[in-house]
Nucleic acid binder design. Structure first.
Lengths: 189, 189
DNA sequence: TTTTATCCAACAACGTGTCGTATGTTTTTA
DNA sequence: TAAAAACATACGACACGTTGTTGGATAAAA
């Protein structure tokens, strides 16, 4: 039997769950280790066997939520399927909405949005034509713009309990991105 | 003489300055009141005459940084001058860059971005044609998209020490917003 | 002088991180 | 297969630092 491993995993998860049940309603700064361990039913000292401090729990959770490059679907930027970055985020968000909607919300962690952007930038760059009319620096700004917008509108959508059909949301983003930009990014000059 | 008032103001400002000198390099959770008052040269108890806790300092600072509606310039959305929201943010950012670049950065406060968006939304709505093809809800999503994007690209620009001429940044945003959207927002159906 | 307000020192309560130990599990040995 | 050794997990107790409050000292304003 590998009971030990299971217990360890279970304890860790219990602590994480207890933390999250607090984090989703409190600012992180007001969360004490005592609260977490009490909620999970452990001694306060046990916490330190698994995490260094409260922020360590958050960061460990975040790390599991950043998609690895190879996990993400390959992407093609065509005029027809240009809601692309949105599809990507819709999937990601839907899959982890429990965490994303908090982490990207008002009491969330601004660093998480940055991590997310940096993780998805390479994927999108792949879809861009290397010989576009933009320099690398400029492309980076363009990505920053698009990703910020995408995260912003998605967070808004979740925060408002999806008071818009997905199809309409996609149409809106389609309108917002415009076709001219895609053409410019693709253009081989 | 109103020496008293001056002293009060000065003490308050000293505490705020001391706080900020710490906040710009530390996460807020690691800032202690002891540090603040030591840096400012006061007793720890004095802090509580002015603020309730560390977060109160931050929020009081933030409140002075949110533009009042009447402070913002009136706005007109024309095809030629459509970098508009960017101009607005360029001004705001430039004027308070010392604070904005931190508050909107990785160690900043995500709630501040929301405050900022909500404060500027009415201004932009004013510029939109009421009879556009979009419903109120949809317009709100559009604004959320645009403002998130604008804040994102501006923060990026400042974080990277403006490694792009302003003129080029404006051109990029111009490309990104596209003219078709503006037309749709303006269209009287 | 009286009143008002700023600033300070001291206090109790609380949270933090660490260390030694007990308990239960896995592995080794007889 | 059973006892013993080695290991890991969870706990209680400790010293330390931070918090927020209260009562008093000092200086300005009335």
């Amino acid at each position: 039997m590998l009971k030990q491993k299971e217990i360890t995993m279970q304890t860790r998860q219990n602590l994480i769950d207890a933390f999250w049940s607090l984090y989703r309603v409190c600012r992180i700064e007001s969360i004490t280790i005592k609260e977490i361990t009490q909620k999970a039913g452990y001694n306060r000292g046990t916490f330190y066997e698994y995490f260094t401090d409260v922020y360590d729990v958050l960061h460990q959770i975040e790390d599991t939520l950043i998609p690895r490059i190879d996990e993400l679907p390959p992407i093609q930027l065509t005029e027809k399927q240009l809601g692309m970055p949105l599809d990507l985020f819709l999937d990601l968000y839907e899959k982890n909405s429990k965490y994303y909607s908090i982490l990207l919300g008002d009491n969330g962690d601004p660093a998480f949005a940055t991590k997310l952007k940096n993780a998805t930038k390479p994927i999108l760059l792949e879809a861009f034509n290397r010989n576009s009319v933009y320099t690398d620096t400029e492309l980076d700004y363009i990505l920053e713009y698009i990703l910020s917008a995408m995260i912003g509108i998605m967070s808004h959508w979740f925060a408002r309990d999806k008071d818009l059909p997905v199809t309409r949301l996609i149409e809106l983003v389609h309108d917002l991105m415009g076709t001219s930009l895609i053409q410019r990014i693709q253009s081989t000059e």
